[in-house]
Design a protein around this nucleic acid. Sequence first.
DNA 1: CTGAAAGCGCTAACAT
DNA 2: ATGTTAGCGCTTTCAG
Lengths: 336, 336
Amino acid sequence: MGDVTLHDVARAAGVSIGTASRALTGRGRVAAATVENVREVAKSLGYKPNLIGQALRRGRANVVGMLVPHLENPFFAGIIHEIEEQLFSRGAQLLVADSRWDPAREEERFRIFRSTQVDGVIVVPAWLDRSAELIRSVRKIMPLVQLDRYAGPGVAEFVGVDNGDGMKQVVEYLHGRGARSMYFIGGDRATSTGVERHEAFMAISKRLGIRVTGEYRYQFNFETGISGVEKMGEVPDAVVCADDLIALGALGALNRRGLRVPEDVMVTGFDGLPLTRVVEPQITTVCQPTQELARSAVNVLYGIIEGEGSPGDESGNADETAVRLVPRLRAAGSTR
Amino acid sequence: MGDVTLHDVARAAGVSIGTASRALTGRGRVAAATVENVREVAKSLGYKPNLIGQALRRGRANVVGMLVPHLENPFFAGIIHEIEEQLFSRGAQLLVADSRWDPAREEERFRIFRSTQVDGVIVVPAWLDRSAELIRSVRKIMPLVQLDRYAGPGVAEFVGVDNGDGMKQVVEYLHGRGARSMYFIGGDRATSTGVERHEAFMAISKRLGIRVTGEYRYQFNFETGISGVEKMGEVPDAVVCADDLIALGALGALNRRGLRVPEDVMVTGFDGLPLTRVVEPQITTVCQPTQELARSAVNVLYGIIEGEGSPGDESGNADETAVRLVPRLRAAGSTR
DNA sequence: CTGAAAGCGCTAACAT
DNA sequence: ATGTTAGCGCTTTCAG
């Protein structure tokens, strides 16, 4: 087999196993010539370090776990890719799992992550309050950062987008295009993004004197968009959706109802999925800086890891980092 | 920390570490009373086995790697979820990576998987021929199964859908609805699914006396659907797309071109993504049995793992399993 | 049936 | 600068 061990390399290079280790990892004092020699031998033998052995000894697996509510959500899929990319460049790997919005399952997966000795966890909490206690307790025993949503105030480190700002861009843009009445379709109070986007929408529309004809809030998916339109009475100037999946659903339902977009009613989404550029008309949306979100999450996580274990240890209420990135509106056919 | 080790459990239970191990894993002869006692102590101490230690000793990590060309593809995302589910119920975890259709990257990820001592790998090969050699060689050193596509004939175990049958269902259905001319948009020769679906389409349309007005083949994504429609001259009775993403793109482009679906032209997809039920009209498509595919892939993989290491060892040309599941047509608005 | 002991592959003191 | 050695947490002979 290709199972050549460090021991083999050391023997072939005529040095001790300790020296071989140092030469390969570059962690101790070794003569330049020795390093070169060992490296060469290792390569010619096709030596690949056994990460398990390394992990056991170092107490670190170089693996991070990622837990999202729903793998099929294209927004999460996109962010997972970016995270994997970031990790890889640090020599780490990605373990994924989805919680399916099930707190029990969420806990289960955390437990497994823990047994695997992951370096840390990046989580998109399934629920706004129900996940809080769990996440708080996990944070105590391993490095953790929340991405996209948080489970409650001060629960743990968080990286996400400024939803208020994004929603503001949407409503002001629509207002600028003459919209004076709006209908809102969003996620419910069960996620922080759901709450933040809704609150921002309400605040800004009020400030601009926009008449809110109604709202429908359930989940971040197609069906919600469809139901939202079905439950919509009066036809507003614009239907503001809290994410792109909802907007997609709404678009289809409006079509079915014989309403033309944007002539009869404008539609907006949130997230900036590629999908929004495919349908006709293309959907105006707020683009999340996926790559920056991923980079930032990984940075914050490794900040904790390297800054030593659990940040909540003694201090009880250590300062949790909260990074808010700024999204950008992308105007398209659904609003003009 | 919660880092209670087997050693702690053994001491607390008043037995040796060996006995504790046997009691917990159930792998040796231990008195029933001892087992119960040890288990109880373990639970009360909150003992969780350190998977790294286990893996090092057993030489198996209980982790499988999954490599797909593109994480954001909803079809892959869906299948990844099902795989994760299957693995979890076997006590294993999922390491994911995407190759981004880059053979170098594909190789790189395999290497890492190997170092991690994964039990095996499930791969959706990036390319039909370019990936063949790599996969063949990986198969020699670790359990591997190809999913959805294969890299070449006889390269390694494979689990996928019967593309010929699916395409047959589509064309016959369209023919039954009066379509006599068709335009094909698909993936290129670079994937086995691209080839199979195209060939099946050609064979069946020929047999039914259908006039093929043209074809456009590039990649399995939205853009291809859009370009395909742009390059389409004469308007056929139906546009047959090799997957749902292409169909989505085609639908949008047809709309933009002022053609109504299904009145002016019918459209079909392949895969059965939820997305096809959201747009208006909903898209007729061939549904892949995602869950069965995942189950089957995991079964085949563990068959290899448990049947001992590398199947290609001596035999040189051992029989590769090839599982073909049957997909099912779902008719919808885009064809009536 | 249970205890003792030998490592899995690797790193990090500690010697030399 | 390099060799030696002691484990990381666990499973598994091998004795008893």
